[in-house]
């Protein structure tokens, strides 16, 4: 089990569209401790997803610094970022983005192809990841044979199978009903509390944010405020 802290300093991101400058992040400073579960909230265009992409090395900052664990992302090339991502970050998307022609197990196995690993070890890891998300009995099902909640669980298993330091979730419950959302959020809590994963989750939903230990509010690309939850850990609740 691994985890990492995140340090963001004076982070700026500007997009250009038709030669027009669109500032998204305007000198953001933020610290996230290892093992924290943070919800990112804010109105549309406040820079939540952009921040998530920059922390995950999917995009590069215009200025400022992003450190994840020991890694300073602004010093890395595109190829280095790609390789770093495979080892340190797990992504969960709103629309799951599973490969429709592969089974649940094969989808989860995909990121392990980037590691030198025996096939038997890969299979074992896949089984463990799917069991953690409660889909040990759905390994051979294809995405179109699963419900939305189950698909998101497979996506979560795919995100954790490489044992990343950080899990980045972009509105993971945005496409799910209330009951299924609750199940997915409980699963994220489990990963955070039982496995010590640092989780950063973008959400518009205050109920979802309530599952996090800390909620960071962004406004016009800057930190507006931070709120700490008094939510009881799952183990204590049980």
């Amino acid at each position: 089990m691994s985890s990492a802290d995140i340090e963001i300093k004076k982070l700026k991101k500007v997009y250009y569209k038709d030669k027009m400058e669109i500032p998204v992040l305007a000198g953001l400073d933020l610290s996230i401790s290892a093992g924290e579960f943070v919800a990112l909230m804010g109105p549309s265009g406040s820079g939540k997803s952009t921040l998530l992409h920059l922390i995950g090395g999917l995009d590069t900052a215009t200025a400022g610094s992003v450190r994840v664990g020991e890694s300073l992302l602004e010093t890395m090339s595109e190829a280095q970022l790609t390789s770093w991502r495979s080892r340190h970050v797990g992504f969960i998307f709103q629309m799951y983005h599973l490969v429709p022609v592969l089974t649940a197990a094969q989808n989860v196995e995909l990121p392990l192809l980037l590691f030198k690993m025996k096939s038997s070890e890969r299979k074992e890891r896949v089984k463990t990841a799917l069991t953690i998300v409660g889909l040990g009995d759905r390994m051979d099902h294809r995405p179109n044979q699963l419900s939305g909640g189950q698909e998101q669980r497979v996506a979560i298993a795919r995100a954790i199978v490489t044992d990343p330091d950080v899990i980045l979730a972009d509105e993971p419950t945005g496409d799910l009903d209330a009951k299924t959302s609750e199940e997915i959020l409980n699963l994220l809590n489990l990963l955070n509390e039982e496995f010590g994963k640092t989780i950063l989750m973008v959400t518009h939903d205050p109920k979802a944010a309530a599952h996090a230990k800390k909620t960071v509010h962004l406004e016009k690309g800057q930190l507006e405020r931070e709120e700490f939850s008094n939510r009881q850990p799952m183990a204590a609740a049980r």
């Binding site: 995950g56 999917l58 190829a79 790609t82 390789s83 991502r85 495979s86 080892r87 992504f91 998307f93 629309m95 983005h97 490969v99 429709p100 995909l110 990121p111 980037l114 795919r158």
Partner: peptide, 14 residues
């Protein structure tokens, strides 16, 4: 496109 983007986000190279 979305599938390729996902693969790249998982760490698969161009």
């Amino acid at each position: 496109i979305a599938e390729m983007a996902t693969l790249k986000s998982l760490g698969f190279s161009g």
